[in-house]
Design a binder for these strands. Structure first.
Length: 464
RNA sequence: GGCGCGGUGGCAGAAUGGUGAUGUAGAGGACUGCAAAUCCUCGUAUCCGGGUUCGAUUCCCGGCCGUGCCUCCA
């Protein structure tokens, strides 16, 4: 059996992945807080863990991939106050958009997509356990996790408690026993989302929902916990603290998830995305201009742990590359792919790259070799290999005719006129009236069409 | 200030203690009336300075530059 190697943020080393239960691998990845459209950074996380789940499925008979929707959060309350919509309306709306947009990036839905608001009792129970074990305390309607009660705190982010306090720019609330303590439960005003609890009407703090949902749907410990690199601290650090302490593992930060996988940040044109810079690249907008596969492959064009700079130039390069793949498929459009052949060295090259800590650039290079072979061979076997390799990366699902824009009709395209012009050009060329032939090509070009002369006659396709 | 990451061809981006992938862009050629598409070919690419080594882009030290987290953040 092949072995998957993964980089574990907890140990900061790459090692062979060995599941707790080889018959059932369990993966959790922190999903979005749904108060607005997802940006390309959210998408990188989603694509990375979709890929990881898919790779795990090539190795293990059962994989449960859980990725949550956080639908209770102060940012949602803020959005509600700004728009006048209810929190529930906002979260329903953006959760639906998120799932729709991610599907267009070629993601399979997670096996389970729990929502925070559906797990309030589990959170309350978890908090109660932490209080009973004296890892948490109530103060002024809040419940706080007492960080000094967890000696292993800081294992993930590599910082000790004193370090982070020294550099902290956060004001310390007076009711905290320790400056590093964080909120598990906080009071809600009557007009804010809230639930009755032993500590009054309130809502959960930011970190407890993932601890509760992961435990509920995967059991503890599970195999892999993932998310964006910025979540290492404080979010994941706090999840570890809560979950490990609740189950009495005060000295074992791996008692929650065995390993941790974090994807790197996305910058836009060399700058960090931020609302103040106004350069937040939203998936919803990008999908209006680019096929989902271009966005997906662009996100996979750098190794997941490396920073990725998002730019139009990147998208153009990826689009051109995908065009080349689809052209090969177009030329084989009348061949039924043969998937039944024995596993091949070509597919193995892609898989081995992905098994090496999801080395997608290397896998894409292997895909390129496959494309080369397929364009020369044009056999059912090669087509099967190409499509299978593409599917491992979640691409090449489109119809090549449509992708390349051949003979596509549309509201703004008058096919009969095009055919007439092409016929006229054919006649002109036969009469060696090249001036007229070129005029017609210019005319078609003005209509956004490219003409290609082939041995079988002229073909036209849509320019982008 | 604390912790971390990175600097490879025009651009993107892997890998490696000893011939440095792949894509994209560009150049030349084949094909074409010309194009388009395709195919072939090409480009003295590893930030700087030390160290270890027979040999370093790769390991170590220092420097310069860039960047991330430490506050809501994927």
């Amino acid at each position: 059996m092949k072995t998957l190697y993964l980089h574990d943020s907890l140990t900061r080393t790459k090692g062979a992945f060995t599941p707790l239960d080889p018959k059932h691998v369990r993966l959790y990845a922190c999903g979005p807080t749904v108060y607005s459209y997802a940006h390309i950074g959210n998408a990188r996380m989603a694509v990375t863990f979709d890929l990881l789940a898919g790779i795990l499925r090539t190795l293990y008979p059962k994989v449960t991939y859980v990725s949550n929707i956080t639908d209770v959060d102060d940012k949602i309350i803020t959005a509600s106050l700004q728009t006048g919509e209810s929190c529930a309306a906002i979260t329903d709306k953006y959760a639906a958009i998120y799932n729709h947009d991610m599907a267009r990036l070629g993601l399979l839905p997670p096996d389970i997509q729990p929502r925070a608001t559906g797990h309030i009792p589990q959170m309350i129970a978890l908090i109660q356990t932490l209080i009973e074990k004296e890892h948490a305390y109530e103060a002024q309607g809040h419940v706080l996790f007492n960080v000094p009660s967890f000696p292993a705190y800081g294992a993930l982010s590599g910082r000790n408690r004193d370090d982070q306090i020294a550099g902290a720019r956060v004001e310390v609330a007076p009711y905290k026993k320790d400056p590093a303590d964080f909120v598990l439960w906080k009071p809600s005003a009557p007009d804010q989302p809230g639930w009755d609890s032993p500590w009054g009407f309130g809502r959960p703090g930011w970190h407890i929902e993932c601890s509760a949902m992961a435990q509920e749907h995967l059991g503890l410990p599970f195999d892999i916990h993932g998310g964006g690199a910025d979540l290492k601290f404080p979010h994941h650090e706090n999840e570890i603290a809560q979950s490990c302490c609740a189950r009495g593992a005060e000295n074992d930060p791996s008692a929650f998830s065995k390993i941790w996988v974090h994807n790197g940040f996305v910058t836009v044109e060399g700058e960090k995305m931020s609302k103040s810079l106004g350069n937040v690249a939203l998936v919803h907008d990008l999908l209006k201009e680019w096929p989902g596969e271009v966005l997906r492959l662009a996100l996979l064009s750098a190794h997941y742990r490396q920073p990725l700079d998002w730019s139009d130039n990147l998208l153009r390069q990826i689009k051109s590359f995908l065009d080349g793949l689809y052209r090969t498929l177009y030329e084989m459009r009348n061949i039924e792919p043969d998937y039944a052949s024995a596993p091949t060295a070509e597919i193995d090259a892609v898989l081995e790259a992905l098994y090496d800590d999801l080395n997608t650039p290397k896998a894409i290079a292997a895909l390129s070799h496959i494309n080369k072979a397929a364009s020369l061979d044009k056999s059912a076997h090669q087509k099967g290999i190409l499509l299978r390799a593409g599917s491992l990366l979640g691409i090449l699902k489109a119809d090549p005719v449509e992708w390349l824009g051949y003979g596509v009709s549309g509201a703004d395209i008058d096919s009969s006129k095009i055919e007439r012009l092409i016929q006229e050009r054919k006649t002109a060329r036969a009469e060696k009236n090249y001036r007229r032939a070129d005029e017609i090509r210019d005319e078609l070009d003005a209509m956004g069409l490219i003409i290609e002369d082939t041995p079988g006659g002229a073909k036209w396709r849509r320019r982008e």
